[in-house]
């Protein structure tokens, strides 16, 4: 009785909704808005997280001071920070981005900090002996060693941000995938929910294939 019903629509029905969404421009628009928020939130979280993670990994005193704070922020439920950001700063775009960044940042810091702790001291000493200086050491000695950690933070981060960003949009924005999914939920429109999910999965696959895999290949070309 569930087959070919509103609750479990056929692939054809989902494809039709997908196509209509694309033609009307609704689906690309909302997907685009969400992607833009993702790009901004992700970039800020990664840049800040890498910088703070490297500093904490290299400085034991700072690390000891911030360690507890990090654990607290790592474990605060995403929903709490989202609601607080909206309550404190209003239902505005920057509050939405801030909520995303606050949720993602501790994960990046912890991952990069572990990577920095695992840096090869012999290579760092070599760089000191040959007067590499800070920039050369960061680019040629530290960063290549952090690559697996950065890629780990990127992949797990993208997955986390996708999930958070939809809740952020659902709670306080009037556009984006999260807002649309909320609307479809209220209308009990499962076909649209599935059509948007397909678009979502396709974008993730494209990011992996067109950006992350080539980055991996380039960075790890030296390996046998």
């Amino acid at each position: 009785m569930y087959l070919n019903s509103n609750t479990l629509p056929t692939p054809e029905a989902v494809a039709k909704v997908f196509w209509l969404g694309c033609v009307s421009g609704q689906l690309p628009f909302h997907l685009g808005v969400t992607l833009l928020r993702l790009a901004v939130g992700f970039s800020i979280a990664m840049l800040l997280g890498c910088a703070i993670g490297i500093v904490l990994g290299r400085n034991k005193k700072l690390d000891a001071f911030f360690d507890n704070w990090l654990v607290i922020f790592l474990n605060i439920p995403a929903l709490v920070t989202i609601i607080l950001c909206y309550v404190w700063f209003g239902l505005i775009e920057s509050a939405a981005i801030l909520a995303v960044v606050i949720n993602k940042l501790p994960n990046v810091i912890v991952t990069i900090r572990e990577g920095t702790r695992a840096l090869d001291q012999d290579l760092l000493d070599m760089a000191r002996c040959y007067h590499f200086g800070k920039r050369k050491t960061l680019v040629h000695v530290i960063w290549p060693q952090l690559h697996p950690f950065v890629m780990g933070a990127t992949r797990s981060g993208l997955a986390l941000i996708w999930k958070i960003i939809l809740v952020v949009e659902l709670l306080g924005r009037s556009n984006g995938m999260g807002y649309q999914l909320h609307l479809f939920f209220q209308l009990f429109d499962v076909a649209s929910i599935l059509a948007y999910t397909v678009a979502f999965v396709a974008v993730i696959q494209l990011i992996e294939l067109l950006i992350l895999k080539p980055l991996d290949k380039k960075a790890l070309r030296w390996r046998r």
């Binding site: 040959y130 000695v141 030296w222």
Partner: peptide, 26 residues
């Protein structure tokens, strides 16, 4: 000013032979 040949060669595995030497130059 020193040049140091360590027990373990300590070359950067992600840089080519030439790049490893170039990086040490002033």
């Amino acid at each position: 000013k020193i040049g140091y040949v360590f027990q373990n060669p300590r070359l950067l595995p992600w840089r080519t032979v030439r790049e490893n030497i170039e990086l040490a130059l002033d």
